[in-house]
Amino acid sequence: MDYVFDFSFLESFRSEIINGVRLTILLTVVSILPGFALGTACAVGRLYGPRWLQTAVTIYIEAIRNTPLIIQVFWLFFGLTVLGARIGPFNAAVIALVINTGAYSAEIMRAGFQAIPKGQLEAANCLAMTRRQIFWNIQLPQAAELVYPALVSQFILMMLATSIMSQISVEELTGVGYQVQSITFRGFDVYLVIAVLYLALATMLRLCLHGAAQLAFTRLRKLRTPL
């Protein structure tokens, strides 16, 4: 076995690789917040909404969670093209990611809302808070903080899932890897580098999300204890 690694493509394709990393980060950053918002809305709809809304949200969540992301992306991208709506691959990728993450974070947030101790809600009622105040000041922050570790894992999984978007010609990191590989024929070397880059991205994202938690959760910042 005398395989010689050749990482010279790092030099010649540097700008392509950097662009790929940038696009992967962009896809992730753009999709996280809308996905989380959609998920929270769905969790609330499923827990407190009228009967028809509960059914609709349940169907949405089960449909998304039991089919692969790539089929959803194809359905959206090619389907919309047939309908005549040309939204472009990047937008299609973002919409698919938001819809997908929405379904997963809905289940996570639902668990969060259900895990809030009843005493908290009773206390809020005793303070004569309105329904809206209770939701924004008591339920949402506590639910989010309770399930934050699960949310972090979900967002990292979503970042990793952006790697499939090269299938609809969004040239993110994996797509760039494929291009470089098809020019240099160094598939193994190229994808080893890509894998290391993803590892670094996943670590960075985890750190950023933990930093965001410190900013977002006042209680956590002051007490430094898990809820």
Binding site: Y3, L160, T174, G187, Y191, A195, A202
Partner: peptide, 22 residues
């Protein structure tokens, strides 16, 4: 941690190209 930090498509590629080296 390694496997969970790398997307599955990339693992597929690494294996696919890696096996052919041998």
């Amino acid at each position: 941690q390694f496997v969970q930090g790398i997307p599955l498509p990339v693992i597929m590629f690494v294996v696919y190209f890696g096996v052919s080296i041998y």
